[in-house]
Amino acid sequence: MALKMATTLECLACLVSFLAGYAHGDKVFDVTKYAASPDGSAEDNSKAFSNAWNAACQYNRSATLVIPKGTFLVGPIVFKGPCVSNPSPSVQIIGQLKAPSSLATFSGPSWIEFNDLHELVLNGSGIVDGQGADAWNNKTCNKEKKCKNLPMSMRFINIVGGQITDLTLRDSKGFHVDFQQSTSITVSHLNISAPGDSPNTDGIHISRTQNINITNVFISTGDDCISIGPGSINVTISDITCGPGHGISVGSLGKYQNEKNVVGVKVKNCTVFDTTNGLRIKTWPGSPPSEASNITFEDITMNNVSRPIIIDQFYCPIHQCTDQPSRVRIHDVVFRRVTGTTNTPVAVTLSCSSSMPCKNVQLQDIDLNFVSSNATKITSSCLNVEGEASGTQNPNPCV
């Protein structure tokens, strides 16, 4: 009896403490209280979202910006810090956000941007719809091949500490999610999708960002599922389902002057299917000097993948390319326990620079087979690469 009473008193004390904490600081900023409406215009809803965010950002205690049930057409919006409180206000997306279809609405590189925030929590069961079809079919995009600068759906800049979870993103005009100059980020349980022929719709792009963990994400787009750009340090990617698309890529690297090195990438426990590449490192020819090192791909399952394992230091998707070798130095790379099927005869391609040969590339327990039951023999191709193979090797290694 005494134990039961003590337990009851403890529960009451917890409840009182929780209510006291809520009364002394926790506050919800609902965008509909600031005139956002499912019937509103993109411009009016953008203003309402901005007003709600500014109020939450200036609040000196714990705050949450809430986008409730409903479908909101909203134009470009920046959730800008620094805010009065630390951590910054949380953002909960429960409803559906739709971007304007017309590119004329966008003057910057992104649709929804989070900038200069600390300990950002972004979650919810909502949908972020970039409505990219009109942009992909735009004459300028298709005929002049200018699809590279289409607005990203979500851009994160200067975020120190963050958790992005449980959202659905679809049909972004450009990249779906982009991280720049950020640190200590966890990304999990996202569902990202766009048609397989949509141009430059990378699922998640990372650059100049360190200590980022991406896990339990489904990505189906027209470009890289995840692309890891210059300045990425200590990147962990796990339990990703990727396909269709262009696979999981480090790069492209070496396109611009003064790029920062890529150091410490681990990709593990992923499934890649129906993609044009599997696990890829790509650098531009004639590039300025930089490095990509300490990269491990392990426990990866391939299903009907073209070029399952590829290092390409001759990457050049445009028509005019230099014949000068890449000066990105690639070293200490491991492909370990990569299994499944390929739909091209050359399953492993390691094409490295003549001026900067790849060093210490390890192939460990690779078991790839041709996708059909015919007798097509799969092979490996190597150029300017030093390394070794161990364990099961199918196809026969060329290092």
Rank of each mutant, 00 (worst) to 15 (best):
K4L: 12
C14R: 15
S17P: 00
L19F: 10
G21T: 05
D26W: 08
V31K: 01
Y34G: 02
A35T: 12
N45F: 09
N51S: 15
A52Y: 03
W53M: 08
A56C: 08
Y59D: 03
L65W: 04
I67V: 15
P68S: 08
T71S: 14
G81W: 03
G81K: 07
G81I: 04
P82N: 07
P89F: 06
V91R: 08
G95N: 09
L97P: 11
A104N: 13
G124P: 02
S125H: 11
G130A: 11
W136K: 05
W136H: 07
K139A: 12
K143G: 00
E144W: 11
K145A: 13
L150P: 01
L150S: 01
S153W: 01
T165H: 12
S172P: 10
H176C: 10
D178H: 11
D178S: 13
Q180Y: 12
N191G: 04
I192E: 01
I204S: 01
R208Q: 12
T209Y: 03
N211Y: 13
I212C: 05
N213W: 11
I214C: 03
S220M: 07
G231K: 02
S232N: 02
I233Y: 06
T241M: 06
T241R: 08
I248H: 03
G254L: 06
V265Y: 03
V265S: 02
K266Y: 11
T275C: 12
T275D: 04
K282A: 11
W284V: 10
P289M: 06
S290I: 02
E291Q: 14
A292R: 02
S293P: 00
S293Y: 06
S293F: 05
N294C: 00
N294G: 00
E298K: 15
D299R: 13
M302P: 00
N304L: 06
N304I: 04
N304C: 00
N304G: 01
N304T: 06
R307E: 04
F314I: 09
Y315H: 09
C316D: 05
I318L: 09
T322A: 11
P325K: 11
R327L: 14
R329T: 10
I330G: 00
I330V: 15
H331Y: 15
R337K: 13
T341L: 08
A347L: 06
L350G: 03
S353F: 06
S354V: 11
K359I: 10
Q364V: 12
I366G: 01
D367C: 08
L368S: 06
I378K: 08
T379Q: 11
S381R: 11
C382M: 09
V385N: 01
P395F: 07
V399L: 15
